[in-house]
Nucleic acid binder design. Structure first.
Length: 601
RNA sequence: GGACCCGUAGCUCAGUUGGAUAGAGCGUUGCCCUCCGAAGGCAAAGGUCGUGCGUUCGAGUCGCGCCGGGUCCGCCA
């Protein structure tokens, strides 16, 4: 259904007529793409430039030969050599129009690629269960969720995964912080600073969000996790009495809050993998054994980093993974001095778990502060899978939240940063999702709370939603015609350049899915939608000047039907693309704050 | 000291994995419209793609060196 792929096959056929035994490697380099300049036609191919040497012809000459063959095709209006050996194709309008019934038949599945047979694991969010999610997590969540949908649209079998970091020092600190709130809820006379002195590492998580957890611990356990204390009334019990139940209880509470935030954002995961469970299952030891069998583990001492030396640096023998054998810069430690695994080692276990479940490709969405971690995890997966499984990492840059151009930093709930829940409450789920995808993942982003709810041309959320609302308005006014009937319309009535431009844009959708998925760049979908909306609004505006271009004209039933077919197809592609982004298409535009339809169409 | 990411119009950003004369929105300037099909429409100006070499038929895109910004660099995750 991708007409670019279809025409590429025609180009290869034509080339085979001239150069029967072109090697596969050469054929693979031949592309058929939309030219940058619309004036050059509908499609351009580099075939003549790629194959010139093998054919023993100068590129323009070969282009002319190919043009002669291609211009005879029923799809092609004209084929003309250009420049250094390009071959420009202009398609017959009838061929373009013939795509409309195909779109109407496919509906929102238009753009869905056939199954590739490849299993892809997309791990995203994976926020530590130590506090509320902030906007940075939100960006990762949206990018990951849209990327997963995009890969599924491109024909891959996708599993959406969340890795819970529920082992290690951060979670220990969380348990101590929750225990403090528990003692407070019981009415201890101890001060926060006194408590902080008593525990290892000090009191790290001081946000108010743990207060309800402390209260819930009291409701569940009473005072059984504490001890009477002469001075404070209530004091700490030994960790062996309270630590594990408090840890488990608190992690569960944090995960519940994270899941609520994700649900509010419309982000879902198929699988939640627990770090602690994987370790308990012995994955770490098995992963180490696999690496050791290849001679990739040894005891050694790392060089200190050059330049500024950490103050407490001292040479130390460690268990190291030979990551340098797979392109990393240094070998990486696997064990802490207490014998437990480093985060990296535990993550190796996590990846072994993925590999053993049979995935062909592993995709991660990480914050940019994890950029230094990419090489070592690629090295580990290469070693564990014998090079069979690939790893791709999409890094997301930080989000600056603004309101009317002014920085917003304070959060009602967490005190130090804007929480995801605050953001969703302020502007709505769809605005959050769409806006998060209007930038390349690895570019810093400014998220202006006022701009994303503005009803104007420079707010893409509004602009795209408005296009869909207009589509729906027209179809409602036309009495909701059956797409199957519209597919039989006399589409030759669609002759205006703006109408044909819109059709061309629609036919670009399958290609956009494929390219965006291959590049792991879901933001391209947002840009496509913006372009599609622009083409549709342009046509709409033409109708305001030229009444014969209005979609519904009582005096022209046949023309009306043809234009309605185009409008319905546009709506389907809009919904298909919005579906990849996880944004709800609206029937009409309303100003949420007033509850009135201010832009009813 | 090293690794990774970024640098494109006044501003915010795209750029179809190396293609033709580098695009969009905002802003600026000019013209049109005042229509309940409720975001106004059309057009113009605006660029040595941070910079210098290199790779080749061809570089914003690939390689190397600088300049500037960001992230990170052994028992945090």
């Amino acid at each position: 259904m991708d007409i670019f792929a279809a025409l590429r096959a025609r180009v290869l056929d034509a080339l085979a007529g001239i150069l029967p035994d072109a090697p596969e490697e050469l054929r693979r380099r031949i592309t058929v793409e939309p030219p940058r300049e619309a004036a050059h036609g509908d499609m351009a191919t580099n075939a003549a430039m790629v194959a010139a040497k093998a054919a023993g012809m100068a590129p323009p000459r070969l282009a002319a030969e190919l043009a002669a063959r291609l211009s005879a095709l029923p799809e092609v209006d004209s084929a003309s050599p250009a420049g250094p050996g390009f071959l420009n194709l202009r398609l017959k309008p009838s061929f373009l129009r013939a795509q409309i019934p195909l779109i109407l038949a496919a509906g929102e599945d238009y753009g869905q690629a056939p199954p590739t047979g490849r299993r892809v694991n997309v791990e995203y969010v994976s926020a530590n269960p130590t506090g509320p999610m902030h906007v940075g997590h939100g960006r990762g969540a949206v990018v990951g969720d849209a990327l997963a949908s995009l890969l599924a649209k491109a024909g891959h079998e996708v599993v959406r995964e969340y890795y819970i970091n529920d082992a290690g020092a951060q979670v220990q600190a969380l348990a101590y912080a929750a225990y403090w709130r528990y003692l407070q809820a019981l009415g201890t006379g101890m001060t926060e600073e006194e408590y902080a002195q008593l525990i290892p590492g000090g009191l790290q998580y001081r946000g108010d969000y743990l207060i309800p957890v402390g209260e819930a611990l009291v409701a569940h356990y009473g005072d059984s996790l504490a001890e009477p204390h002469a001075l404070h009334g209530i004091g700490m019990a030994g960790p062996d009495r309270w630590f594990e139940p408090v840890r488990a209880f608190t992690v569960q509470a944090m995960m519940r809050s994270i899941r609520e935030d994700l649900a509010a954002l419309g982000v879902r995961h198929d699988v939640f993998v627990s770090e602690a469970e994987r370790i308990a299952a012995g994955d770490l030891e098995r992963a180490e054994a696999i690496l050791a069998a290849q001679g990739l583990i040894y005891r050694g001492v790392l060089e200190p980093p050059k330049g500024k030396l950490p103050e407490d640096w001292e040479p130390r023998e460690q268990v190291l993974f030979r990551a340098t054998a797979f392109g990393d810069d240094i070998d990486r430690p696997l064990r802490k001095s207490d014998g437990s695994g480093t985060y990296f080692a535990n993550d190796i276990a996590n990846h072994l778990h993925k590999i053993e479940r049979g995935f062909d490709e592993l995709v991660h969405v990480w914050g940019a502060d994890h950029g230094g971690y990419v090489k070592r995890i690629k090295a580990a997966v290469a070693a564990l899978s014998g090079g069979r499984v690939s790893v791709d990492v999409v890094l997301t840059q930080i989000v600056h939240v603004l309101k009317g151009g002014q920085p917003v930093r304070m959060s009602k709930r967490a005190g130090s940063y804007v929480t995801l829940a605050d953001l969703i409450e302020e502007v709505g789920r769809d605005a959050v999702r769409f806006t998060m995808l209007t930038r390349k993942a690895d570019a810093q982003m400014e998220f202006d709370l006022e701009r994303v709810v503005e009803q104007s041309r420079d707010n893409p959320v509004f602009y795209v939603q408005y296009a869909h609302a207009r589509v729906r308005s027209v179809l409602r006014a036309a009495g909701e015609p059956d797409p199957a009937r519209l597919a039989g319309a006399d589409l030759d009535r669609l002759t205006d350049p703006a109408e044909l431009a819109l059709i061309r844009r629609l036919t670009l959708w399958p290609r956009t899915v494929e390219a965006a998925a291959a590049a792991r760049e879901p933001h391209r979908i947002a840009f496509y939608l913006n372009d599609l909306a622009a083409d549709f609004h342009l046509l709409w505006n033409r109708g305001r000047e030229d009444a014969t271009l209005r979609f519904i004209r009582a005096e022209d039933p046949a023309g009306t039907e043809a234009r309605l077919a185009l409008v319905a197809a546009t709506g389907m592609v809009l919904r298909s693309a919005l579906g990849v982004m996880g944004v709800t298409p609206v029937e009409e535009l309303r100003d949420e704050r007033q509850g009135e339809a201010v832009a009813r169409v």
